[in-house]
Design a protein around this nucleic acid. Structure first.
Lengths: 363, 363
DNA sequence: CTGATTTCCGAAACCGGTTTCGGCAAGAGG
DNA sequence: CCTCTTGCCGAAACCGGTTTCGGAAATCAG
């Protein structure tokens, strides 16, 4: 028995041991070895054990691409980076990818990353990757309201999972953090502190998260009996300077807000700058609460009150979902959401007793 | 001719067009089509064109894993993430990966990411990935002085490229930023500003970059005729709190430094905190210059003077080098370094006219 | 016009697995 | 004791490519 293991003398190209070597060493045929390894029912339990033991002994591991020729699957999950809006994923990507690959590794999968430079070549990149057989399915970060990636993949019947929800759920699996709940809770938190004039700085409206967070903000305002001033609403602010401009516009109005909800941490940090420019201090003059849970927010002065999302976990969940999808589970089973966690820090405080009580509307 | 193209009626599994379909459509054999596509010399120029045109028309693209069975190569570059010290790559990874995959994409390659949770499973992850045939070669970020990954891969004859140099260059290809030059220039810069007592906070000594940057610091001090005080030297500081502790220890000495060179931006930001704790202000009381070029440094108050490294570019260079390595080029041709770029911001200033001139050593 | 090269392509083996099919031997049932 | 299952494995086809080899036709030299 053991002599058979040592008698592996064929050293064709490198010390790779193939399934035929296994068969020779065991006195079986390739097909039997293969089925034993894959746990087919028509293999005696004894031989299955014997084969697996030999595999461990010889350190045999099938070539994934050799398997793929017949099975059509490589055990790899695709992720394509859009280099055009690279700031979009910068803080986001590292944790997310770590989660993705960790979740994939658990099931013996890997993550295959490609990149599209321009927005036009994006779809081509997907197509080419799918045709290449480089990925069994795709993970689509940042779901868009009108998502060309989802359309393509659905049409070509390639499995995929979205990070973010989709209005039309047909054919879509997803994982998402309920940003709308967070925004509603943000308003509640501020209302509890006595704020009544609250502004909202939203993210990019091309993404589905923006409309959801807006919804949540509106719901929170309604619940708390507050009225929304259209002049205190801004869209498409995702960078610091975006946030600075938006918050500045709020503050320069006749009746500035006492609190601002930001859909994105970065925008909130821009709001910090806008306050500083005007000699105002965060929390004392204007309260700010945001969403993301970035490190920058934690480091800011004062530390930013925000709703943290666990991108690491999101990655893990997404790869798990995609693997199940690849294995044939219907999309209806593959939709998960989770809550963001409120991180109360120091950017919110009681509403200042300003001239706000008797507002001069058309009254 | 064109009728042949439309007569592709076999729809076995999905609308995939195989090389046999191509052969049928062209009235040639598989082998001829294959060689035409791969540019073999024994194919008439005319037929080669004809085949390629048909490939475009039928949208034919070979399955990379089918090719790999014979060629042994998947056109994918491996990268394994170490989740244990995740903070090590956090800001680093996003840009780096973008560069990697961009460089890979240019040559039709992809990047395959796996992850090792513990430090022990790291080598196994490499071994398994290589045996799986999931990657043709590997990119090894953060070269260590005694690098188990490099050892393994060299032993198993798997191509790899290091981000960072190696003392023993045998079998090693690499790309690196010359941190030693940056540290030397940092000292020069400070010396030009009149500083004479300069501290140094280094990074993790397990990585090769640390000894190089230390070398550079020493060289700079020597060049400028300055003496190194062992009490102003610290190691293994890579986080904010690390830097804060190290800088704090410097500042609490009888004769504190007027400037600190940090091997890592994060440590410098910790030094900011240490100064703030003691009522000192950056640049006026103590000058600080660091290395990395992180966004956090740019956002800090005052903005951090540092040496920026272009991780995006590093990724691109590394994938290019690895691809060449996979294609058989000897490692001797595959070693590149580049300079970090000095970004003078506001954390350095002239040395304060303190009690430093007549230092009371054993004199 | 003949013989020797080239040029160009087809036939077939091969890569390392998976999967279908069929058959032999042992056990079950009558 | 004979038949019918059932359990278990071998033989061979197959997946979609690549590569080696050999041979026919075309070109060249003499």
């Amino acid at each position: 028995m053991t002599e058979a293991a040592t008698s592996v003398s064929r050293k064709r190209s490198g010390p790779r041991v193939t399934i035929s070597d296994m068969a020779d060493a065991l006195g079986l045929t390739k097909s039997t070895v293969s089925r034993a390894l894959n746990g087919y029912a028509d293999i005696a339990e004894g031989t299955q054990l014997r084969v697996k033991k030999m595999a461990a002994e010889l350190n045999y591991q099938p070539l994934s691409y050799a398997q793929a020729v017949k099975t059509g699957r490589t055990r790899s999950l695709g992720l394509v980076l859009q280099l055009s809006d690279h700031d979009a994923h910068r803080p986001f990507l590292a944790e997310f990818l770590a989660g993705l690959s960790a979740g994939a590794s658990q099931e013996g999968y890997t993550v295959t990353v490609a990149s599209a430079d321009t927005h036009d070549t994006l779809v081509d990149t997907f197509r080419s990757l799918a045709q290449d057989g480089k990925a069994d399915g795709f993970i689509l970060p940042r779901a868009m309201v009108d998502d060309p990636r989802a359309k393509l993949l659905r049409a070509e019947r390639v499995p995929f999972v979205l990070y973010g929800r989709q209005q039309d759920p047909t054919g879509c699996a997803w994982f998402d953090v309920r940003g709308e709940d967070a925004m509603r809770d943000a308003v509640r938190h501020l209302a509890d502190l006595g704020h009544r004039r609250i502004g909202f700085i939203n993210g990019k409206t091309i993404y589905t998260y923006a409309s959801l967070r807006l919804q949540g903000f509106k719901a929170g305002m309604a619940e708390c009996g507050l009225t929304i001033d259209p002049d205190l609403m801004r869209d498409n602010a995702v960078t610091r300077s975006d946030g600075q401009a938006a918050a500045g516009a709020f503050l320069d109005q006749a009746e500035p807000p006492t609190a601002i909800v930001c859909a994105v941490d970065n925008a909130a940090l821009g709001a910090y700058a806008a306050l500083a420019e005007r000699g105002l201090t965060v929390a004392k003059d204007v309260s700010i609460v945001a969403y993301d849970g970035t490190q920058d927010g934690a480091n800011a002065q004062p530390p930013l009150t925000t709703f943290a999302v666990d991108n690491r976990n999101a990655g893990e969940r997404l790869s798990s979902l995609l693997i199940r999808r690849v294995r044939g589970e219907p999309v209806e089973n593959l939709r998960e959401t989770t809550a963001a966690t409120f991180v109360r820090r120091a950017s919110t405080g009681p509403a200042p007793a300003g001239p706000t009580p008797s507002s001069n509307k058309n009254f």
